[in-house]
Design a protein around this nucleic acid. Structure first.
Ligand code: SF4
Ligand code: SF4
Lengths: 151, 151
DNA sequence: TGAAATAGTACTAATTAGGTGCTAATTTGA
DNA sequence: TCAAATTAGCACCTAATTAGTACTATTTCA
């Protein structure tokens, strides 16, 4: 369906929040701030932890903090963790994955398109997202053309 | 999962084939050429027909031809027909679609990213795809950088 | 008339996404 | 020391979407 899963979508919100904090933030806290279902948030954080993107402290006043700087984390990596490795078409990473590959005339242009989109998501860092976040209140006043300073 | 559905993937193959022919091509024929399951191909062609992308002739020697020129059909339209309207995140086309929109800090940068990708798929016409298709045999010999003349 | 083909619709099966529950382990602070 | 807060690690369930199939009717042409 060519859209980000909720898991990835929420993960981006969570990471963007952690990126703006210094002290650990608990799953409880971040779920209530953004009105997200706590169990989902907890699950996603656990997955981000086991993938090494964040680190945790247990017990009272515990929570999560980013393990690396926001500028070092790109969107491609987040998608890979919470969704799966991005592949516009199956044959991008493994030619054998698609049984019609040998007959397929359009794999080449589709793979080329894949790489262009891939470049975008790799160039978009968490720091970029956090930066862009700050002006949310002006969204409705600006034209869509002016939102393009993302990369 | 951020990938094209098989339906869209196959639709592109079918349309690219029709774009290279003058006489009507039957579902049977195109299915056998590309080793695709006939029922799927037939279904997809029916959907492309009802969406006005192709036209049909029935009976013996019948089949399908493009209704418009390949240069007039872009990837965005194909995706809209066989998948659904592209939306990287739900809030792109309708803010109310996502219940956390009011609290969401990251919608702005994600919508910006959406528009960039959208621009790509709109700029990619069926004619571009057909053109790029011709050099498939050189794919393995070329670096991925050289595949970029798509848009 | 009969074979080849589309037209339309309805259906099933497999996979994925979204969301929940439970129990153990750890830390803090009263 | 003990209870509360919190993460850790699973296993599970349900709904939605995708992939693929089936069947019947209609049209065309030889
Ligand atoms: S582009 Fe062709 S080879 Fe690649 S996944 Fe799609 S059908 Fe298969
Ligand atoms: S970006 Fe935010 S508002 Fe948009 S769909 Fe995702 S969670 Fe909802």
């Amino acid at each position: 369906m060519l859209k980000l899963s909720k898991k990835t979508d929420y993960a981006i919100i969570l990471l963007a929040h952690l990126g703006g904090q210094i002290d650990p933030v608990s799953a409880q806290e971040v779920a209530s701030i953004y009105k997200l279902p706590y169990p989902m948030v907890a699950n996603i954080l656990k997955q981000l932890l086991s993938s090494g993107l964040i680190k945790s402290t247990r017990g009272q006043n515990g929570g999560y903090v980013l393990r690396r700087s926001a500028g070092d984390i790109n969107l491609s990596e987040i998608i890979r963790i919470t969704d799966s490795t991005f592949a516009l078409v199956e044959c991008v990473h493994e030619e054998d994955a698609c049984k019609v590959y040998q007959c397929c005339p359009t794999s080449r242009p589709l793979i080329a398109l894949h790489h262009k989109i891939q470049q975008f998501v790799e160039d978009t860092t968490l720091a970029n997202i956090i930066e862009d976040t700050k002006s949310k209140n002006f969204r409705v006043k600006k034209s869509s053309y002016e939102t393009a300073h993302l990369s």
